[in-house]
Simulated scan of single mutants.
Amino acid sequence: MPVLTRSLWFFLALSGAGIVLAEQAALPYLPANQFRLADYLPPPPAIDSSLQQSDLKAVLAAQAVRSSAQVSQVQQDDEWEDSVFHFARESLGVGFSVERLPLTRAFFRRAQEDLVQFLMPAKHSYGRPRPYEASALVKPVLPPPEGDSYPSGHSMNGYLNATLLSMALPEKRSELFSRAQINADSRVIAGVHFPSDLEGGKISAAVLAARLLDDPSAAVDFEAVKKEIRGVLASTD
């Protein structure tokens, strides 16, 4: 018997709107030309500015006290695939899993495609060097990430996860946004971002969340996601 593809498994397992959502998991919701993320962001500090020097000092200060436990954590947080499940596992418990939440997985995969398609042009427009490119004193503990430094994609992804999950589970908002802050800070600890990159990512997440939920298709799918999350977490309490 031939091995079924992941998409076909989704097709067989789901019905109604959920089928469409799962089948299109790799497609962004929004057209690439809908908006420019850079239009919503302040520019990063200029290379020769005092703000840039403060940013670099913060990276070096984090590096000076970096522990092996922190290195292990930032390496785990570096993963992108199905990152929302790693992101929220501690806050939402073992029931919040890939296996139990196929609609949630598909929705967040599509949202992440939107993130990438708007993030990368913004990075390119600013062309900010990474901390280890700006100073040989910075010793990163991760492989060189894709794209330039500003804004931070991991920060954007973490805050996007926190924003959307908080809309589904308002009672978990504080925990989820605390987790987003930890996730963002890990990029400075790792030596691959400046603190101001994280702020750019946070703003970017708010912009994308609003744009996504203004899209009719994404909004319908998100309603299904909220019901799925509530149902699964209630069954595992």
Score class of each variant (00 low, 15 high):
144 P>T: 15
84 V>T: 11
67 S>V: 13
131 P>A: 13
166 S>M: 02
154 H>P: 07
43 P>F: 00
69 A>M: 12
22 A>P: 08
114 D>F: 07
219 A>P: 01
32 A>T: 11
217 S>R: 14
15 S>G: 07
115 L>G: 02
195 P>I: 03
71 V>E: 13
208 L>M: 09
129 P>Q: 04
71 V>G: 00
34 Q>F: 06
165 L>T: 02
136 A>S: 12
67 S>K: 11
230 R>A: 12
134 A>V: 10
17 A>S: 13
169 L>Y: 06
189 I>R: 03
109 R>Y: 03
230 R>I: 10
204 S>V: 01
41 L>K: 00
87 F>P: 00
29 Y>A: 02
27 L>A: 14
94 V>A: 15
34 Q>N: 10
173 R>T: 15
145 P>D: 10
56 L>K: 08
49 S>L: 05
119 L>P: 05
112 Q>D: 11
125 S>Q: 09
86 H>L: 12
57 K>P: 00
221 D>G: 03
82 D>V: 09
68 S>R: 13
204 S>G: 05
93 G>M: 04
167 M>Y: 09
50 S>I: 14
13 A>F: 10
125 S>V: 06
161 N>E: 04
166 S>K: 04
71 V>W: 00
92 L>S: 04
187 R>Y: 08
65 V>W: 09
23 E>W: 09
227 K>C: 12
18 G>Y: 02
178 S>G: 13
219 A>F: 00
131 P>G: 04
193 H>I: 05
42 P>I: 05
43 P>S: 04
163 T>F: 08
167 M>F: 15
171 E>P: 08
87 F>G: 01
237 D>E: 10
44 P>T: 01
70 Q>P: 02
230 R>T: 11
9 W>C: 13
184 A>W: 12
93 G>I: 10
66 R>N: 03
122 A>P: 03
175 E>R: 15
37 L>Q: 03
204 S>N: 01
226 K>P: 11
167 M>N: 11
205 A>S: 07
115 L>D: 01
21 L>P: 01
85 F>N: 11
170 P>N: 09
19 I>M: 03
46 A>L: 08
29 Y>V: 03
153 G>A: 06
142 L>N: 08
175 E>L: 14
126 Y>H: 07
20 V>F: 06
129 P>H: 02
104 T>A: 08
237 D>N: 07
161 N>F: 06
129 P>C: 08
28 P>G: 08
11 F>N: 06
162 A>M: 08
20 V>Y: 09
22 A>D: 02
208 L>A: 12
62 A>S: 03
39 D>E: 05
44 P>L: 07
119 L>C: 01
28 P>I: 14
96 F>E: 07
140 P>E: 10
71 V>K: 13
49 S>G: 02
2 P>Q: 14
64 A>R: 11
101 L>S: 04
72 S>R: 15
166 S>V: 05
4 L>K: 12
143 P>A: 10
92 L>G: 02
194 F>W: 07
126 Y>G: 00
147 G>A: 01
151 P>K: 12
151 P>D: 02
100 R>N: 11
140 P>K: 09
100 R>H: 11
11 F>V: 06
89 R>T: 10
165 L>N: 04
208 L>H: 00
22 A>H: 12
18 G>P: 06
157 N>V: 11
227 K>E: 11
59 V>L: 05
158 G>Y: 01
18 G>C: 04
129 P>T: 06
181 Q>C: 09
76 Q>M: 10
32 A>E: 15
229 I>F: 14
32 A>Y: 11
95 G>Y: 07
97 S>M: 04
